[in-house]
Every structure is written in structure tokens, then in C-alpha cells.
Amino acid sequence: MTPQLFIFGLNIIVISLFLALYGLMSGVNSLIGVASSLGVLGGVFIVYSRIPRDPTITALVNYSKILLESTTSIIEDLDLLDSNLCIVRKGNELLAVYSKIPCPIQVDPGVGFTGGSPYLAIPIEIPLVEGFEATGTVDQATLERMLRTIIVDELGMARELGLTITGNTYHVYIHGLIEVLKDYSKYPVDPYVIVTAAIIAYTTSASSIRVVEKTTTPDGVVIALRAGEIAE
């Protein structure tokens, strides 16, 4: 929360109340109009003062690092550092599955064993997709717009994003990564890979999206994903 913006908004509302009162007593409608307008202004500032400011973000970043390192330890202990990452659809849920076999479907959230390989399955909740429809189509322009809206505009994870589709393979080009998440992209649970793959899995309603390759460029990352592969 931003206390200064909150107090500023509150002050504006108090001023608008006095102005409205004076306008009512003197019968000048334009004063009441100005007061109403100031009331809207103050109300907006009060609402926006509730948006977390940077120190809260710093606390979140530190907490995320703790969680990331503990997840990486689990992946190391399961000998899954060189494993395949696949977003698998299980009912209405999406799971990020780390396993030696590509895209196992007989998995449950958590740690387990399937097809002769240990796995770690993490339930994924994609931020902000409720405003978009899971059409099941693979229209490149629509998918690229959705990826850009969520990753660049809403989450601010990068400055620019591009997408090409070849058959059932998606190439996502992400440029201008933000500093704090750039450090996280070195971990197995890479936020750029997870969020991108999950959005594509949700939008296309694919049964699975496998991360084929991740290439780091000087300013970003290129992620290649393939849809529809399932291990029996």
C-alpha cells in the first residue's frame, strides 16, 4: 500500500465533500459538479494506493527465491535436472511435470513414480487467463496477442514477445527480460518457460505441451514447445 497516495485521495474526498456542501448551500450546480468530479478523483487514488509498492515486491522476490531453491533441491534429489518439462492436462488442472519420460499422463500433484521414472508434478494456476477464452484453436495472431498481453503488459515479465507456429511446434521469442526474473530463469523451474507453456496449453486446450528446447540469447530467451505428445 502507498500511504501518501491514500492520504492524498482522502484529502481530495474531504475537499470535495466541503465543496459539494458549499455548492448545495449556495445553489451553484457547477460547484457540486466539480465536487463530484473531485470525489471520483479521490476515490480512484484511494483504490490505487492499495497496489503493493516496491518493498512488498522485494519481500515477494526473496520468498520466491526460497521456494525456488527448495524445489530445485527436490528436482536434484530425484535426479531430474536433465529431465523433460511437460505441461500436462489432468481434468481441469494443468500440471508442470518434470520426468525422464516425456509427458506422462498417469501423474498426480507432488512427487511420484511412473513409467519407470520418478516425477515431480506442480499444479499450475495461470495468472489472468480468466479474461481469455480457451478456444482450442491455434491461430497464431490470437495466441501471440494473448501471450503478449499476459507476459508483457500485465505481468511485466519482459519488454517484447514474438511467436511462430510450425505444425504443432511453437517458437516463442521473449526479449528484454526483467532483472529479477532473469536470475530465476537459470533454475529448472523457469518462470518464463512455465508461464509460456501453461498459457499455450490453456489456450489451445492441448493434452500436453512439451518444452523441447530453451535457448538463452543476450537479451532474452527462445523457447521451443511441442503439443500433443503423451507417454503411454
Partner: peptide
């Protein structure tokens, strides 16, 4: 402009 309609002020603010 001597506008006296209150809703004009509110709608322009919105």
C-alpha cells in the same frame, strides 16, 4: 462554459 449538469462533470471524469 457555465455547465450546471452534475452528471457531465462525473462522466467526463470517468
Amino acid at each position: 462554459l457555465n455547465e450546471s449538469r452534475i452528471d457531465v462533470y462525473i462522466s467526463l471524469s470517468i
